[in-house]
Design a binder for these strands. Structure first.
Lengths: 231, 231
DNA sequence: GAGTGGTCTAGACCACATG
DNA sequence: ATGTGGTCTAGACCACTCA
């Protein structure tokens, strides 16, 4: 039920029915409107506040965040397109999909036995203006053995895992740093050799907390990563 | 009351009394132990799960996260020392504190009137092994007019704002990217000219959602930023 | 089958912001 | 003075995990 309230409010904000800075009905009023208790409403609002879509002000009300604040759903495990706020225009060039015996760091992150295989997916993500990000992902072979044969659905690894392999990713931890473009990255991302790039190493997990994807990505610095911090 | 439970559990995990991978008592049991309802316990556990300290597995129990997962309290607005997990050893070299009329981007982020002043704080953060990060912060002059005279408490801007100016920061949004070291950054951070650096631009807010700090930092790539993503 | 976390109810009192 | 969000109660039923 709280998911239904969450989706209803999300849709109304996305549609502009609830504009930026607008005040929402009070939690009591929303509860009555949906015929649920206030704790259930709060569960939906908590999620939207966490994403930066809503702001709460004690004694005053709950407000829709500014355009900029809510444009990017922050700290969410989403497709890369949604992450940079350009899901529609993003193109994916699949460079390679193959089964490999991964290196030690990948093996450890995916908790694979020595010699166990993983599927390696290398992609270049592009916008009309040019290349954006070079991404390499590894998925345990046992989870997605048909990936090399069947390829990606719509260029999205997460969508493919969900729809073709019944693998639903729930949370991830990632390390964000910077690195200099090597020859391959410079060529594919169309930047000078040794140019600074945003480097992300991510381990994503399914609901049982088992790791299901390890990824390394290099992104042009014009596409920063937005995040939200709580005290 | 949920804060008390949160702090009790945090302390027991930090002290090693609850080791990594250990299972916590059930939510019902914790509620009885503290004499509160289960919803209150969940409020405390939610916060720890959000930080990556605890992991929940439906039907099985709540577990302390692995050393690595819980070492860094992720997505939290904390002092830089706590952020990189080396609060004790971090040294702060204050390069400059002065009142300035900031540039347009800073003025807009802090929602200052044209010509209004801000206090600029420039710091170099160091560990025993060498420099780590070069940080410039701006705070509206009205919030901290005595900062240039009195300086920082223990090298920490957030602590100074809290203790000397009654300014408590509650949340922030930040853009994370990469940039090449200019001459000054290269000299202070002891890296080659044009070396890749992690660049963060952060706007921090008080409880009323008014902006109270804008900061730009450049960090050596050996000190990545860790974050946690939820589906 | 027993115990766990996930969700929900139908209230309540409080501190706080605003008119 | 009114209404808001912040917190809390004392239950409940469910799906799920695991012995």
């Amino acid at each position: 039920m709280y998911v239904a309230i969450y989706e209803d409010l999300s849709a109304r904000i996305a549609a502009g029915e609830l504009a930026a800075e607008a005040r929402l009905p009070s939690e009591h009023a929303i509860a009555e409107q949906f015929g649920v208790s206030r704790m259930t409403v709060r569960q939906a609002l908590d999620k939207l506040v966490d994403e930066g879509v809503l702001l709460r002000r004690r004694g005053a009300g709950t407000f829709v965040g500014s355009e900029r604040t809510r444009y990017r759903r922050q700290n969410r495990l989403a497709s890369f397109g949604a992450e940079i706020g350009a899901d529609d225009e993003l193109e994916t060039q699949v460079l390679q999909i193959r089964a490999v015996v991964p290196d030690d760091q990948v093996r450890e992150e995916l908790q694979l036995r020595a010699g166990a295989q993983a599927v390696e997916v290398r992609r270049l993500r592009r916008l009309p203006g040019g290349p954006v990000s070079l991404q390499t992902s590894w998925v345990p072979y046992a989870l997605a053995s048909s990936l090399p044969r069947h390829g990606l659905v719509g260029g999205s690894l997460y969508r493919t895992l969900r729809e073709e392999h019944q693998v639903e990713l729930r949370w991830a931890e990632q390390a964000v740093s910077a690195s200099a473009a090597d020859e391959e990255a410079a060529r594919l991302l169309e930047v000078p050799l040794h140019a600074p790039l945003l480097e992300i190493r991510r381990t994503a997990h399914v609901e049982t907390n088992a790791p299901a994807e390890y990824a390394r990505s290099l992104t042009r610095p014009e596409f920063p990563l937005w995040m939200r911090l709580q005290a």
